[in-house]
């Protein structure tokens, strides 16, 4: 099967929101390349524009300036080649667990028998057995999130866009999901853009971690984790062991420091953005 290149490329992307007469610069001049089959995590303070970046890659929002490319084509609309796991799950309340997970396959016209087999596989993988016919409001938050993840995985998309997908999970399930994601990434590598608040999660999962500044969100730094992961064979080891490694804690602490510096810099003097400067001018 031929596989098209599916790198994501943000090229000097800015996004301005208008709220009444006020202009809010949410994302400021972000340039970021996610290579084909690379796993990039974005961390940053709340409200720094992470979700906005992801929505632009999904085709649900568009840059005010700059451009977003997926697989060398400018993103014009959403498509099942780029499945999204939303921060607020966005499950269909009127569909059962089974119907939610099978939704993308149904849209694609996969016959029912084949669809059911795939859905069964993901129900088992996500530990949702016994809840196949429940409606989302009958599930716990963590279970809802697992359904949302399964719904995206089931499409086997070339690009996975995940917005804090493990945010609502308890620590134990979260670790299982992280290991599962690593396993999936190894069996069937795909391009992943992964947003999280949890620095450890980012370091454990990602090839590279992009750290963003406070609003207006810019890229502060990109940390390359892949060489360390490969050298120390993280993927062969259980997660607890990896999180104890000196190299892991070193990277994690470095990112923590960056995020804290970012907070303190903000407290000292508000950053002047090009947009504000322009507005303040004579």
């Amino acid at each position: 099967m031929g596989r098209s290149m599916s790198q994501i490329s943000f090229q000097s992307v800015s996004r301005v929101f208008r709220r009444g007469s006020e202009e809010i610069l949410a994302v400021a001049d972000v340039s970021l390349e996610v290579a084909d089959r690379e796993f990039v995590a974005i961390v940053g303070p709340s409200g720094c524009g992470k979700t906005t970046l992801l929505r632009m890659a999904a085709g649900l929002d568009f840059p005010s300036s700059g451009s977003v490319l997926v697989g060398a084509r400018e993103v014009a609309e959403p498509g099942p080649d780029r499945a999204v796991v939303f921060q607020q799950f966005a499950l269909f309340p009127w569909k059962t667990v089974r119907e939610n997970i099978g939704f993308g396959l149904k849209c694609r016209g996969v016959p029912a028998a084949q669809r059911n087999a795939a859905v069964d596989r993901y129900i088992e993988m996500m530990g949702l057995q016994g809840h196949e016919n429940a409606y989302p409001h009958q599930l716990s938050g963590g279970m809802q999130q697992r359904v949302a993840i399964a719904r995206s995985y089931a499409l086997e998309p070339e690009v996975l866009l995940m917005d804090e997908p493990f945010g609502a999970l308890d620590a134990q399930t979260r670790i299982e999901m992280q290991e599962e994601l690593i396993r999936l990434a190894r069996v069937n590598p795909r391009t992943v853009l992964f947003i999280t608040h949890a620095v450890e999660e980012a370091v454990y999962l990602a090839d590279r971690v992009a750290v963003m500044t406070r609003r207006p969100g810019r890229l502060a730094e990109i940390i390359d984790v892949a060489p360390v992961r490969r050298a120390e064979a993280w993927e062969e080891r259980p997660i607890e062991e990896v999180m104890d490694l000196g190299s892991f804690t070193h990277l994690r602490t470095r990112i923590w420091k960056m995020l804290r510096d970012e907070r303190e810099a903000k407290a000292e003097a508000p950053r002047v953005t090009p947009l504000q400067r322009r507005k303040a001018g004579p």
Binding site: A58, G59, L60, E77, P78, G79, P80, R82, A83, V84, F86, Q88, A90, L91, F92, F103, G104, C107, R108, R151, S152, L155
Partner: peptide, 18 residues
């Protein structure tokens, strides 16, 4: 209707009719 649900349908490949 929650707009995110429509967005979710779009990213999972739903046509306008779907």
């Amino acid at each position: 209707l929650d707009r995110t649900l429509i967005a979710a349908a779009r990213v999972h490949g739903a046509s306008e009719r779907q």
